[in-house]
Amino acid sequence: MLSVSYGKTETLNLFSAKIQTPKIDKQADKILKQMSDHLTAMQQFSYKSQGSYEVVDKDKKKEQLTYSSEVFVKRPNKLRVNAKNNNRDAAVYYDGKQFTVLGKNANMYAVAEAPPTLDAALDSARDRFQMDPPGADLIYSNPYKGLMEEATQGQLVGEEVINGKASNHLAFKSKEVDWDIWIQKGSSPVPLRYKIISKNIPARPEFIVNFTDWKQGTGPDFADQQFVFSPPANSKKIPFMRLGDAPTASNTKKK
């Protein structure tokens, strides 16, 4: 068997260095690409989402939590989200310069500098502040690219009706998650449902979101000023909890 040595440590067998080619059904790929192109072309849009996610406790028991949200996107650098669950009512603003999250019940808000594009801002929000707008994978400038990066298998499962609308059900697999997406049939191929199963976590928790009310954005809801945060009366500014920060006096104590 032929092998080539690179220095003392690295030896790579030419015949075992086989690169795995994703097995993506052409039709599934085409439908996903159509959805992505459609979303990319929508420069201003809004949608509503109702989702649920499962939380696994230490005994590997799952609890399902639900939320609803309303998302407004203005490419390339504006986003506004209103999110609610049983106990939380929050708003997120991104105006191309800053992120702001307002906790409406507590009337407290946190502000941070943000990158100049929505794509970078979404990454930054997720990595730094654990912020995740519902269906965020789908509002990047090129959803297809991100969705397919780690896909190893993909297929068209068939046609299904979601909330009264005919859709194509696609199923994909990757190393860490399996995900399904239901895309509306016809001239407006928007996502209607998105499901992710985290298969490497005990109990395989599931995240599922239904999208409704997709609208091309026009009118006052999409005025630039609507994406700029204005502190409510008597609101209090607080810091973000950063991933990796230890909540000790050194970084959380007020001066």
Binding site: G103, A106, Y109, A110, Q130, M131, D132, K254
Partner: peptide, 9 residues
């Protein structure tokens, strides 16, 4: 201290 964890105070 109040902090914002994701979208939760």
């Amino acid at each position: 201290e109040a902090q914002m964890e994701g979208t939760t105070v």
